[in-house]
Amino acid sequence: MAAGGDHGSPDSYRSPLASRYASPEMCFVFSDRYKFRTWRQLWLWLAEAEQTLGLPITDEQIQEMKSNLENIDFKMAAEEEKRLRHDVMAHVHTFGHCCPKAAGIIHLGATSCYVGDNTDLIILRNALDLLLPKLARVISRLADFAKERASLPTLGFTHFQPAQLTTVGKRCCLWIQDLCMDLQNLKRVRDDLRFRGVKGTTGTQASFLQLFEGDDHKVEQLDKMVTEKAGFKRAFIITGQTYTRKVDIEVLSVLASLGASVHKICTDIRLLANLKEMEEPFEKQQIGSSAMPYKRNPMRSERCCSLARHLMTLVMDPLQTASVQWFERTLDDSANRRICLAEAFLTADTILNTLQNISEGLVVYPKVIERRIRQELPFMATENIIMAMVKAGGSRQDCHEKIRVLSQQAASVVKQEGGDNDLIERIQVDAYFSPIHSQLDHLLDPSSFTGRASQQVQRFLEEEVYPLLKPYESVMKVKAELCL
């Protein structure tokens, strides 16, 4: 049975990233139509530049190519590739079939990587351009969430054990800070992308030097003109047959890092959902379990974690691919890159769409948070109580021993009897502590235990987050809708 299948058929496997999760716009960027249309555009740009620099290419040939950029006979191309065992030459023939007058000058002087690699770089750039505003929107939604809850005390956790208090907004800023680093890295790697350009079979530009009869300047002009037509500021000066596969490492490393950030955020949300302090959106008709109707599973956060793990592992592909590119190139890269580049971007696209949807509907339960604080705060307040007693004339050592005994009794009630923490009640009825009984409410005010959390939130948002989001103001209103 021949390899390949009808990918629109229910009898043929289709990647869930495309069929179930990723956005239509990201799927289109990695589609065959987008790819092969870009090949034709690159052939047109090459012909236009070659004509401008004096090669015998007519206006009629150029116009014929322009008129057929979208006229792609995919069936013919597939048949040609089956016959020739070469995808680029299959599309040269297919393009030439609908451009008979231009057929002889299509791909003039070029090698397969002229269309293959340059198209990949265009796709990487455009895919990054799709991700950047999506990530900015996630940051914006979380920034709104953090600002609104900047002063809401909550129990902090280290080692997932109760620690000092923080605020809900401050905790959210930990998430935002990681995503801001990801946004900066995505922008950097996007701006650092260079075009492969017009380089020939081993990167020496020998074929173009021959076409222009040894004119170095025209060869350099050709490279520059096509690079500018493709919208790049610069091209690699040095290439082998391909652009260095280190570029793929750079791009997928940034995406993998984004995956790590999203995994951490969504894990926190899942843990908070278990504590009943916070939940992701839950639709009115949504079913959490087929057997347990009360369940409210954090399905979206779980999906993000599941896909983020996949995204983090994909960076190993370009690392290994770059390491086995012998001399000017081997074909070890080809099949692998067809999979890992598309999957990385479709996965990143999915987790950003999902995280935006989550961040637009996060639900906080202040009463649950308050109750958990009441359970733990008495123990945390013991040092403040000791200091207040010393100020009232008591002995630190005597007070410490009193607190120690009462704390152990209260802990026994919590752990052995399943009761509430009654340390404060014990202190309130103990005559030894009568000098500070009137101060206990103040000493137990949760806001006095959150330090500068709310001020940190305000400063972080104003100095770091809002300036970073400013270039994306025009796209901030787009909502994230999930079908599944």
Results as ranks from 00 to 15, higher is better:
2 A>M: 15
6 D>R: 11
7 H>F: 13
8 G>T: 15
11 D>P: 14
12 S>T: 11
15 S>A: 15
16 P>R: 10
17 L>V: 15
22 A>R: 09
23 S>K: 13
37 R>E: 11
44 L>R: 04
48 E>K: 03
49 A>R: 01
51 Q>R: 09
54 G>W: 03
57 I>R: 01
67 S>P: 07
67 S>H: 10
67 S>Q: 09
68 N>H: 10
87 D>P: 01
91 H>F: 05
98 C>Y: 13
103 A>L: 10
107 H>G: 00
113 C>F: 03
117 D>P: 00
124 L>V: 14
143 A>L: 06
147 K>D: 11
163 A>L: 01
163 A>C: 04
164 Q>G: 01
166 T>N: 09
169 G>C: 00
171 R>N: 01
171 R>V: 02
178 D>S: 05
181 M>T: 11
185 N>R: 10
187 K>Y: 11
190 R>V: 09
193 L>C: 10
196 R>Q: 13
197 G>C: 07
199 K>Q: 05
200 G>F: 00
202 T>Q: 09
209 L>A: 10
215 D>F: 12
217 H>N: 15
217 H>W: 12
218 K>R: 12
225 M>P: 02
228 E>V: 11
237 I>L: 10
240 G>I: 06
244 T>G: 15
252 L>P: 06
254 V>D: 08
255 L>Q: 06
258 L>P: 04
258 L>M: 13
259 G>H: 05
271 L>M: 09
277 E>R: 06
284 K>T: 15
289 S>G: 01
291 A>L: 02
291 A>P: 05
291 A>M: 01
293 P>D: 01
294 Y>H: 01
301 S>E: 02
307 L>S: 09
310 H>T: 08
311 L>R: 03
315 V>Y: 09
317 D>T: 08
319 L>V: 08
320 Q>W: 08
322 A>E: 10
325 Q>E: 03
333 D>V: 02
338 R>F: 03
345 F>W: 03
348 A>M: 12
355 L>K: 00
362 L>V: 09
363 V>Y: 05
373 I>K: 00
375 Q>A: 06
376 E>R: 01
377 L>M: 07
380 M>Y: 05
392 A>Y: 08
394 G>F: 10
396 R>E: 01
399 C>Q: 04
417 E>A: 08
423 L>F: 15
424 I>M: 14
430 D>M: 13
432 Y>G: 08
439 Q>W: 05
449 F>K: 08
450 T>Y: 02
450 T>I: 12
457 V>P: 03
457 V>W: 06
459 R>N: 14
459 R>C: 11
469 L>W: 06
474 S>D: 13
474 S>Q: 14
475 V>E: 09
476 M>Q: 15
476 M>T: 15
479 K>E: 15
483 C>S: 15
